[in-house]
Design a binder for these strands. Sequence first.
RNA 1: GGUGGGGUAUCCAAGUGGCUAAAGGAUGCAGACUGUAAAUCUGUCAGGGUUUCCCUUUCGAGCGUUCGAAUCGCUCCCCCACCA
Length: 395
Amino acid sequence: MSDNFSYTITAQKGDERAHCAVIKTPHGCIETPNFIFCATHGAIKGLAMEQLIATGAQFVLGNTYHLWLQPGPDVVEKHGGLQRFTGWNRPMLTDSGGFQIFSLGYGGVVDEIKGKKDRSARPKSLLKITEEGAFFRSYLDGSLCFLSPERSIQIQQKLGADFILPLDECTPFHMKKDATAASMQRSHRWEFRSLQQFYNNFNDRQRMYGIVQGGVYEDLRRESIDFVNQQPFFAQAIGGSLGGDKQQMYEVVDFTMRYLSKNRPTHLLGIGGLRDILEGVQSGVDTFDCVHPTRIARHGCALIAKPETDFAKEHINLKNGIYKEDLNPIDTECDCYTCRNFSRSYLHHLFKAKESTGGLLLTIHNARFMVRWMEKIRNAIQTGTWAEFYKAHCC
RNA sequence: GGUGGGGUAUCCAAGUGGCUAAAGGAUGCAGACUGUAAAUCUGUCAGGGUUUCCCUUUCGAGCGUUCGAAUCGCUCCCCCACCA
């Protein structure tokens, strides 16, 4: 194998697990800790890639399931891969569709994975899961779809992102331990098949992550870690249910990180709260991804650093009436295009008037905010002040 | 001047005798959102209170019929359409 890919730890103090590293890919390097922005359908909702690049973002994620249904992997392949297709000529990862088995499969309990209560019940479009794979009803046209580990990898090989994920099965929080264990073991078999497919058609411009399952159970997580550590993955991700509340999530991530290989980059799937990221970094996580910053932007919320020591509220809602005549920018410290040019009052107006530009401007702010948040974290680690930084924000 | 239609809460708009403090929508006020079927979803929206219950004031205005009226009758005010 060539040296298209590498993982190098660049800063780590004493016996702290928090560290900085560089992940090298054919499309450039990623400095970690870092945040991966979600471009599920091959676009950052509300932004042109040019605008995301301007924020300093380094890493973007697309979704196998969505891109498979639309426009289809062959179309992307004809463009020369996802990077050319989307205009993001930088490091990229594709998720396997495993999360969709969960999110489309449990109907109203999409929130289950976070231990939250059933709210907006949706009709489920997952028909059934067998050892072979998952049968879906396409949410686009109702047609029957079948996603297997092999199929997911074939699709991802055509999509051509730098990093790909094996198909796994996510389990909801309220699932009994033996069922969680059975699901985890199936995920392992699926990951093994994914690896076989990957290496059978190996392309030196791609690498694969392993995914740790096991829910909130420490012994299951250890079993899953043993599996992942022993398989020839380039990197590893923590998936599945992380518990019923934040504290449990931090604990699950922490004991999982304790046993995972330190020689591989580690990704925490689907987590992106500001405090959550600090806790993850503290446990040794390299990368995070989350729809939260871009989604809440479209819903009128801007991430803020104001309560530097109180993370009860990590954002403000620009739709609130108090911003109607607020001439200040979202954050006077922020150097993003939105904060340099527009008032909270203007943003409030755009959302009240249902102008999609409001979502665009807040997405720019939130993206830039996340980029700067990760820069602050890396800076603290590089200057040997991580412990103080962490304590100042998390205690 | 004539004929017909209409005036309902912040706005639009259902409702023609009790189950109506009054459907629905919008606006307003707030909340949620964590590997995106999300530019989505939820709550609230006459006033007050000891707030799973009570009181006060409401359907253009007034008077009346009735045990009971946004709903029926009379008078008045205003709006719209067409005809002179």
